[in-house]
Simulated scan of single mutants.
Amino acid sequence: MRQGSAELVSVLSGSFERELSVHVFAGSDRVLEGLRFESWQLSSDLGRAICGQGSGVVVHPSLDGGSLVPVGTSGALSPFRARVEPVMTVRAGSFEESVSLGVFRVVAVPSAEDFTVEQDGREVVVSSRVGLKFDSLEADVERWGFRFPESSPAAASAFDEIRRFTNMPVEETVPDVVLPSLKTWEAKQGGRLEAVMELGRVLGGQAVVNSRGAWVIVPDVIGAPVATLRLGELGTVLNVADEIDTDTVYNEVVGSFEDAAGNPLYSVASVSSGPLSVDGPYLRNTRYYSSDLVKTQAQADSAVRAVLDQSIGSQQYDVQIQCHVNPLVEIGDVVELSGWKRPLVGRLTTVSMSDSAYMNVTLRVDRELS
């Protein structure tokens, strides 16, 4: 969750105005600040390897006749060098507070133009409009390939390996684990990011870069809520919907692995009693699982049992919500939905904001199965 004051949390539940501007960075240096940003949108999705993607138009009046239109690698907004930090400012009466939405890599300039006037026989730039497309910082790791296959030794710390592979800050949001066996990561396009994603799965979740620019693990298990979305005239939730889907409720898991010598390992776990029993009316719904980090029979048995327990313990389904813009929440946050026909607690898996007064989010909720 992004940082904000208690007063801001209170203001966001009522009527407020908001405005978006951007700061521009070259490396760690802020070269421009508070630029007006129009026609913008920013979407984040846990289902994407590069979770955050956005676009918008910088509008900049020139005081000295200079242009902001980039030319190749030159210019503060060149996609060869620029990072942008969208900042949302919320106002209500005398209250004002700004929230950083994160830092993003500029990946393209789809449009750019200068507006000029003739002055003393020459054209002078009076303003620039520059369109930008930008990605969250997972893109830096995707672009940075392995030069040759990299090995993670057995008993290496998963978090230490993420630090080594990304050279970025890491916040340990789940307990660290050691890798059960030697792992060699392939040198290929996007291979470094794939390695980080797999290490996230080993840690029991999904690896993403948060709004503070640090790698975190969004855990599979839904914890306590950190924010509330409310219904009502001045609330935040305008529309919700949910559905039941049994296709992903598996009552049998078949594991196929190899030991350190390349010999096959097999393990099966199934539900033997209750409404989800393989001998009951639900019948069998089989999932197949494999992992090259499993090298012993004990690890195989533990792995398939964990996958089965996760399936029968809960079924996740998505609730689509349209709500007033809240700059504090981000993907991975656990939020509570109150004031609906039943209370819901779930994880935000998508968040889409724009220059509209509303945003759309997806809340992934666990439905307990008895």
Rank of each mutant, 00 (worst) to 15 (best):
G14H: 12
F16N: 10
R18K: 13
L20H: 07
S21T: 11
V22R: 02
A26E: 01
G27F: 00
G27P: 01
S28C: 05
R30P: 04
V31N: 00
L32V: 03
E33G: 03
G34D: 07
E38W: 07
E38D: 13
E38N: 12
S43D: 05
S44P: 13
D45E: 05
L46H: 09
A49H: 11
I50P: 04
I50S: 05
G52T: 14
Q53K: 14
Q53P: 07
G54P: 06
S55V: 09
V57L: 13
V57Y: 06
V57M: 14
V58P: 04
P61I: 11
S62H: 03
L63W: 12
L63V: 08
D64E: 06
D64K: 15
D64I: 09
G66C: 07
S67D: 04
V71W: 09
G72A: 10
G72N: 14
G72C: 13
S74G: 12
S74C: 09
L77K: 02
L77G: 01
S78K: 05
P79W: 01
F80M: 10
R81C: 06
R81E: 04
A82F: 00
R83E: 00
V84W: 00
V84H: 00
M88S: 04
V90H: 10
R91I: 12
R91M: 09
R91Y: 06
